[in-house]
């Protein structure tokens, strides 16, 4: 059991958690604006990176935090979204056809539905098989499927194989200029808000109640006439779609996709971000992503061995701070 109630529990801690959430949003919006005024593009892009990684974790948090499904393969969906954006950009730059059949577009509004649909179909397939298993088996089979897709991405010699694929021109959005760092940040921030709103609404709905009950007591849910399997499957697919969306944005941010976007290390990192922030808390992924990217950037700039410190921090959080960062900040270390 990871946590007892959904993230929006109406206890007296609720107000404090909302204040922390609001503070997180204010910080994350004001940093890139101030950075733009000071002409520090680097910090704008760093904020965008945080936003996108947070969004990938929002996706996983939906399955893991609210549905109790420990997916160790979400990097596959992240990479899938990335490859859709990368391949679209590649073909529209070269003026060639995808598989020699389909004309490519560099319009994000066309690329995203393809990425979401692709992720949904793959997640449906993976989920349908994986959700037959539970516990460690579920962790391992999602890992195995992600590895399969990872090796598949290496076999894509047209798109760079192991070396990856450069996106020479960033894909375009209908309004604004996606190459302007602040515009692109705004776009990603809007996408993050959408994904937060979606998880919030779904968790608060009848579906969310069923999902929480599937985690807490599946027999009881089944007795109420709702099949836990299909509830979980839908949640898994939605979760994968959010993460794939983040992947498509990540590829455009970096101007590059490669198989490491799908590696099992990446899957581990997404779990780390969810747990660092606080499992099953709506804004947990944002806190987790801020902490993770800052650790990576600043410790990484200071020592090559930054992962040693990441490991120590993570170990400390798992062993001693079970509510994650949001739990620490709200003084509400919910135990699961």
């Amino acid at each position: 059991m990871i946590n007892s109630i959904t993230s929006l529990n109406f206890t007296k801690n609720m107000s404090r958690e909302s204040w922390v959430n609001l503070l997180l949003l204010v910080v994350i919006v004001s940093v890139p604006i101030i950075a733009t005024l000071m002409d520090e593009v680097y910090y704008v892009n760093l904020s965008t990176r945080i936003i996108i990684i947070a969004m990938a974790a929002v996706g996983l948090n939906f399955a893991l935090g609210f549905g109790g499904m420990v997916s160790f393969g979400h990097a596959a969906f992240f990479g899938l979204g990335g490859y859709v954006a990368g391949i679209a950009a590649f073909h529209s730059f070269e003026g060639t056809l995808f598989l020699g059949l389909i004309p490519a577009s560099d319009q994000m509004l066309l690329i995203w539905p393809v990425a979401l649909l692709g992720a949904a179909m793959i997640a449906l397939l993976i989920g349908a098989i994986s959700l037959r298993t539970q516990g460690v088996y579920f962790i391992m089979i999602t890992l195995a499927f992600a590895q399969m897709i990872y090796y598949f991405s290496i076999s894509l010699t047209t798109y760079g194989g192991e070396d990856g694929l450069s996106i020479i021109l960033r894909n375009n959005f209908a309004i604004g200029n996606s190459n302007n760092p602040l515009h692109f940040f705004a776009l990603c921030f809007f996408a993050l808000l959408m994904s937060l709103w979606l998880s919030h609404r779904m968790v608060g709905s009848r579906f969310g109640a069923a999902l929480t009950m599937a985690k807490l007591n599946e027999t009881r849910l089944a007795t109420a006439g709702i099949e836990p399997y299909s509830i979980r499957l839908v949640a898994f697919v939605v979760s994968a779609m959010i993460t794939a969306f983040a992947g498509a944005l990540f590829a455009d941010l970096n101007g590059f996709v490669d198989p490491s976007m799908l590696s099992w290390h990446r899957s581990g990192e997404i779990i780390v971000i969810v747990v660092l922030g606080g499992v099953g808390r709506l804004f947990g992924p944002i806190a987790g992503a801020i902490a993770f990217v800052l650790l990576e950037t600043f410790l990484g700039g200071f020592t090559d061995r930054w992962q040693l410190f990441l490991g120590l921090v993570l170990l400390g959080v798992v062993l001693f701070a079970r509510g994650g960062l949001i739990g620490l900040m709200t003084g509400n270390a919910r135990h699961g």
Binding site: F72, V136, I271, Q307, L310, G311, L314, V318
Partner: peptide, 17 residues
């Protein structure tokens, strides 16, 4: 299992580095 996965993932990072 989630805690076990995370803590031992952390151990991988620590032991590798």
């Amino acid at each position: 299992h989630l805690d076990q996965v995370l803590a031992t993932f952390a151990l991988i990072l620590i032991l590798s580095e």
